[in-house]
Amino acid sequence: MADGTTRWSGMDARSWARLVSLVAPGLAPLPPRHHARDGSLPGGMLLVAHDGTTVLRALHTLRGVVATDGPWNGRDTLAALAAQCDTRFAVALRRDAAERFMERVGGRCTTDDDAVDTTLLALGVLRELLDDCALDVLPSPLRSLPLPPVEVVRAAWDRVLPDGHSAVIALFEGPTLVSGVAVRRRGGVVDQVHGVESLRAWSGPLGGDFRRDYRVIRAAVERSLGPVAVGLFAPEATVIELLRTETPGSWAKALAVRDVMVEPMPPWAAMATGVSALRAAADESRRWAFDADGWLAKTTRKVIDLAGTVDLQAVLGFDPLAVLGVVLRESRPRPTQPDDPA
């Protein structure tokens, strides 16, 4: 993971916002007028302070104070207040929650903890506060995520991005590379993160077809950062759609018909992109897939071959892509960003 020594480079505001809001549309920047608290905007986040029996204050990030002095009946109250504010994301804090958090983290952290240690420790304390009813969150799936041990996270991290390797995401809008990121892991941490400005500078002029340009971008990243462990090249709109879809096997289908390119395709990526769904369907299509010739058959065979070798769900206890899908389906669509220069 990244830490204070990580070098971040080549990021303009627009392309970075597009990338972040791909997986967190609620973080998409809005013009200041959208935060004017006019009381009519959907979305935002609700923060509720209570003392166990009374709602001390309910604050909405777009609407300001929305409630005071009501009865607190746990999650029911939180859900009702969230519905009243037309938001799906809400956090309730008992008055002593923040101090408990600081005390528990303060007593367990050390100066030698790295990012993985610290993140899991903080998440562990938050889980304790959830169990103590000092903290509550909506939507519910966020409560039930298992918290894997540090060693498991490190092992998964080693599989996702081995030391000395890089990963790249390049997203297109029409013929234009509009967003992306390239990261390199070295010495156990992500030591370099580059935005789309770096990708453009390294790649030079592109042809405008991501199905061909991916080779140029991958080669450029390998020249600049080192061997690429995994790369995702796709139209931005396609990725947004795939992240939100509930249809099993959508990623596998998109890979097969080259709506997205994952190149190279590590085993974990094959699994994460829904290859299990493809495998289920493969009984029907196996004969066709292996008998046929051409790029479609080759891609399908490649995906099927990789299936089952590494399953992140089995390692982590949850499927990160599925969790992301749940959150994204709960979120509102990403707002457009008209008239915002890079």
Partner: peptide, 8 residues
């Protein structure tokens, strides 16, 4: 941090 717009 939470992203912002270039014009913000």
């Amino acid at each position: 941090e939470v992203p912002s717009r270039a014009t913000d």
